[in-house]
């Protein structure tokens, strides 16, 4: 059952790391509803937030791929919203 999964990634504030991170989303061929990048509370670290519209297993697969990127410090699945409950 597709749902919206919000994932937050803390990563080095470097263009190449960001490129690699966004590349994983493209490479793994998942639908992205929303994508945002902003500075985190820590200097030199950015916070990449995106919303995936997919089933939980696929969302977990994507999260696992992020753990492997050099320069990614943390990956959190911060919210899951079942699409059937949306108004």
């Amino acid at each position: 059952m597709p749902a919206s999964h919000t994932v937050a990634v803390l990563l080095d504030d470097a263009l190449l790391t960001l490129n690699r991170a966004v590349g994983v989303l493209r490479r793994r061929n998942v639908a992205i509803e929303h994508l945002a990048l902003r500075p985190s509370d820590t200097a030199g670290v950015s916070r990449l937030t995106f919303v995936l519209k997919t089933d939980p297993a696929t969302a977990d697969r994507v999260v696992q791929q992020f753990h492997k990127i050099v320069g990614v410090r943390d990956v959190m699945l911060v919210a899951t919203e079942d699409s059937t409950t949306e108004v």
């Binding site: 297993a57 977990d60 697969r61 696992q64 791929q65 753990h67 492997k68």
Partner: peptide
């Protein structure tokens, strides 16, 4: 060894 392979 690769966590991402488990259940992929």
């Amino acid at each position: 060894l690769d966590r991402a392979e488990i259940g992929k």
